[in-house]
Structure formats: C-alpha cells, structure tokens
C-alpha cells in the first residue's frame, strides 16, 4: 500500500499535473478576485476566507480526473483490481496521494496567499486549520466523482458537474468556520461538523468509489 502511495505521488509530481498547476491556479484566483472586487482593504479582508476556500476547492477540482484516468487507460487499474489490496484500500490510497500533492500544498499556501487579500491576523491560522481539516474531504469526494466518470472519454466537465454539488456542505462549514474564526467569534460548531463530514467521507466514500470503479471495469 505504501508502495502504491509512493508510486502515485511520484507520478503526480513527474507528470507536471496536479502539484504545481493546482497551486498556480490557486494563486491566480487569489490575484484575480481583487481585480474583480476592487482594492478596498476592508472588503477584501472580509471576503478573504470565503475566496480562499472557493479558490482551494476549484484548484482541488483541477487535478481530480487524473486520480484514476491514467491508470485506467494503461490498464494498471485492472491490475490493481486483481491485486491483494482491496479496491477500497486502493481508492483511499489514491485519494490520500491526491491530497498530499494538492490539498496539503494548498493548505500550506493559503495563509500566504491570504496576504494578497488583506487577511487579518487570526485569519491565517483559521484558514490553515479549516483547510487542513476540510481538504481531505474534498480529495475523497473528488475520488468518488473520478471513479464515476473514469470510463468516459470527455469526463472532465461532467466530473465538475457531479463533484461541485457534493462539495457544498464542506464548503459551507469550512468557509463559515474560517469566517467566524477570522472575525474572532467561536468557530467550534462548524469546525466540528466539518471534521465530521471529513471523517464520514473518508470512512464511507471509499466503498462507494470502489463499487463505482468495479462497475466501470466490468
């Protein structure tokens, strides 16, 4: 399993896909929003947590189709299906690899990019914490969406259509927690609910994703 994790991460890094691209996309979104909204510091700092969350979510979306697509095309997914690791494990590992190469870098970069939007002092901390807890759910939900669309030639757009509605609860609680924390209010409730969503997704979605993969491999 660890070998699979290492292999997936190495592939993701080498193929020049998710890793750098997601971060660059996130930076561009963080740059473009002030152009669209205007440079007033007060407005920017108020919307910063939400924008950072939406930006991270979209950046996460970019590399989702790569989770299974390449392995499906060259047949290694069939090998993995017959390997001693259960399919659920494969899915979980692949989602973890996706998180390590996109979710984690985004989480680390978000506080820095927050400076572009005049994010105030406790905000850096809160955006880091909420993204750290929330992005695993994004990767896992995304892996489920990728498993559904893996057999399709042009699945990219469909994948976004399927995955984005599923992201809504995570986004709402994550951004809410970040906004409340930044404003100095208690963010415990949304944070706990989001942690619950992450835990539930990580625990249950591998089964749904694995069954979708099996259907696609039939």
């Amino acid at each position: 399993m660890i070998a699979l994790l290492v292999r997936d991460m190495r592939l993701a890094m080498r193929a020049g896909g998710g890793f750098g691209l997601g971060l660059a996309f996130f930076l561009i979104v963080s740059t473009l929003v002030p152009f669209g909204v205007g440079p007033e510091a007060a407005i920017l700092s108020r919307i910063a947590p939400g924008i950072l969350w939406v930006g991270a979510l979209l950046a996460c979306l970019l590399s989702l189709d790569r989770i299974f697509q390449l392995d499906f095309e060259d047949g290694s997914l069939d090998l993995l299906a017959t390997a001693p690791i259960p399919m659920e494990g494969t899915v979980a590992i692949k989602a973890l690899a996706h998180w390590l190469v996109t979710g984690l870098p985004l989480t680390l970069a978000a506080p820095a990019f927050g400076a572009l939007m005049n994010l105030q002092s406790p905000g850096h901390y809160w955006i880091f914490v909420t993204l750290l807890i929330g992005t695993p759910a994004l990767s896992m939900i995304g892996a489920f969406g990728a498993a559904l669309t893996v057999g399709l030639k042009r699945g990219g757009l469909l994948l976004s259509l399927l995955v984005l509605p599923l992201y809504i609860p995570t986004l709402i609680f994550g951004a809410e927690a970040a906004t409340r924390g930044t404003a100095g209010l208690s963010a415990l409730t949304p944070l706990l609910i989001m942690a619950g969503i992450t835990a539930g997704s990580v625990a249950l979605l591998p089964f749904a994703a694995a069954s979708a993969l099996r259907i696609n491999l039939r």
Binding site: I141, F144, P165, L166, I168, P169, I172, F173, E176, T189, P190, I193, I197, L205, A208
Partner: peptide, 15 residues
C-alpha cells in the same frame, strides 16, 4: 451518495 450530501447541504444551508 448524492442524497446523503443533499441532506447535509440542507442542514448546512440552514446553519
């Protein structure tokens, strides 16, 4: 899966 998330969204939106 969507039903679960739709229900979650319902509560999320309320909140």
């Amino acid at each position: 899966v969507g039903s679960v998330f739709a229900l979650l969204s319902r509560y999320a939106v309320n909140f």
